[in-house]
Structure formats: C-alpha cells, structure tokens
Simulated assay, not measured.
Amino acid sequence: MITEAEKWTKEFYQKRGWSEYGPFIRIGFLMEEAGELARAVRAYEIGRDRPDETKRTAGELKRELVEEMGDVMGNLIMLAGMYDVSLEDMMEAHRKKLTERFKGETS
C-alpha cells in the first residue's frame, strides 16, 4: 500500500526532474541530507555556538529539524521506489528483524 507521503513525494520529484537520478546519485543526496539533519539535531540539542550565526528560537530550530527529517524521508522514499519497496514494507522488515534479533528480552 502506498502512503499519501510516498505518492506526493514521487509526483513532486517527477515534476522537478529529480526522479531521473539513479541510485548512486540518490544515495549521495540521502547522505547529504542526513548530514544536514545531524547539524539540525545538534543545533536543537546543544546549539552551534558560532558568532557568525544568529540565535534562533526553539520553534525555528524545531522547524528546521522537521524540515531536514522530511528531506531525508523524501530521498529514502525515492530510493525505496527504485527497488519497488514501500515504506510499509520497509518498516515491516525492520520490525521483523529487530523482533527476531531481540526475542526473549523483556522491555
């Protein structure tokens, strides 16, 4: 089952010509966005302590964090689509792997 997020992302990326990039380019974009997400997490959690950057409010930092998460997800959706994998399939495989790996442990 394709989610609304997957459908919107694929359509938007197609309109922009971004769906033409192959898996090696797409993984590069994913890694770039993951780095930007790491920077946003750091800024949100401990700040950046840079005199050349203006201080931002907690709301602004949170908005940037959420936007960067979306950028990571968009690239992951596109990469998954190249291999005919839905977000639902991905998360089911993830759940199954972890459940099996840690079976017998109590939470």
Rank of each mutant, 00 (worst) to 15 (best):
A40Y: 04
W18P: 00
R42P: 07
R26H: 03
M78Q: 11
V85I: 15
R63I: 01
E88P: 01
L61S: 06
D52N: 03
W8M: 14
K62A: 04
R48N: 08
I27C: 08
A40N: 05
E32N: 02
Y13M: 15
E32V: 02
Y21T: 06
E53D: 06
D52P: 01
L30S: 10
G104D: 14
G28L: 08
R42Q: 07
Y83R: 08
E68R: 07
E32S: 06
G59I: 06
L65G: 06
E92G: 01
K15C: 14
Y44S: 02
A40T: 04
R16W: 14
G22S: 13
H94Y: 10
A43F: 05
A80Q: 06
R16F: 15
L65I: 12
E105N: 11
G104P: 14
Y83Q: 09
T54R: 11
V85E: 00
D84C: 02
F102T: 10
E53H: 04
G70L: 03
E68T: 10
Y83F: 12
E68L: 13
P23A: 13
E105D: 11
R95N: 09
I25T: 14
E32A: 04
Y13L: 11
V41K: 07
L30A: 05
S107Y: 10
F24D: 12
G28I: 09
Y21D: 01
K103N: 13
K7H: 12
E67K: 12
G70R: 06
E53R: 01
I27T: 13
A80W: 00
I27Y: 13
I46A: 03
T54Q: 04
R48W: 11
N75K: 06
T3K: 12
G104C: 10
T57M: 03
K55P: 09
E20S: 15
E92S: 09
V66K: 15
E45H: 12
M69L: 14
R63G: 00
M1I: 01
E53M: 03
T106R: 15
S107G: 06
I77R: 00
R26T: 07
R39D: 07
P51M: 01
E68C: 04
H94E: 09
M78W: 00
V72H: 08
E6C: 03
M73F: 08
G74E: 04
T9N: 03
K15W: 13
M69R: 05
M82C: 05
D84A: 04
E33Q: 08
T106W: 13
A43D: 06
K97N: 09
R95L: 02
T99W: 07
Q14M: 11
